[in-house]
Design a protein around this nucleic acid. Structure first.
Lengths: 83, 83
DNA sequence: AGTTTAAATACGCGATACCGTATATTGTTG
DNA sequence: CAACAATATACGGTATCGCGTATTTAAACT
């Protein structure tokens, strides 16, 4: 399932959802990414100062990846670039 | 254009590519996201300790968004989950 | 209700972000 | 090659991470 994330909070939700799908606790996920349970907690809560490394490690541990793409405008999928 | 990012470095590359497409300097992008040119520089270089906030602000300023999805396995696009 | 498991918080610590400001490098162009 | 533009680094300062360790809430289950 794809989740669009435009802020740290949505990223946290995506991580949490996936973690639960795999029936992992924060502690177990933390163990797989060499982070503490408390760190996973903050990440899932959408702490904006979380480090990129922490996010990417969690995604790797959960078998997720990111795609960077132009913002979709929901309505017109193919909106033209400014140039 | 979509860019798959599995680590901070690839994220930095995605940001930089987009910034150049818009003919912006690091300083100009920084101004749009309330960050210093030096911060943009580190982000684009893939500094792993960069904060999520910094990344998300840059994406917003560039009209980009993230999609979180299961890792693609390149070969067999539809590989089954363990359960 | 009471016990156990999980998640959210806390304290001190070392490391590093990002800030303002500034400079050193590197690139580009005439 | 000179001159300017852009990027990479640097210094002191404040803030916060993530760490180890631990505790406090909050959930879940018998």
């Amino acid at each position: 399932m794809e989740i669009i994330a435009r802020d740290p909070k949505q990223l946290g939700i995506a991580v949490q959802r996936r973690r639960k799908e795999q029936n992992l606790t924060q502690g177990e996920l933390g163990a797989r990414m060499n982070a503490r349970q408390a760190t996973v907690s903050k990440l899932e809560k959408g702490e904006p100062a979380t480090q990129l490394q922490t996010l990417m490690n969690s995604l790797a541990a959960l078998g997720l990846e990111l795609v960077v793409r132009p913002r979709t405008t929901s309505r017109v999928e193919e909106l033209e670039e400014l140039f």
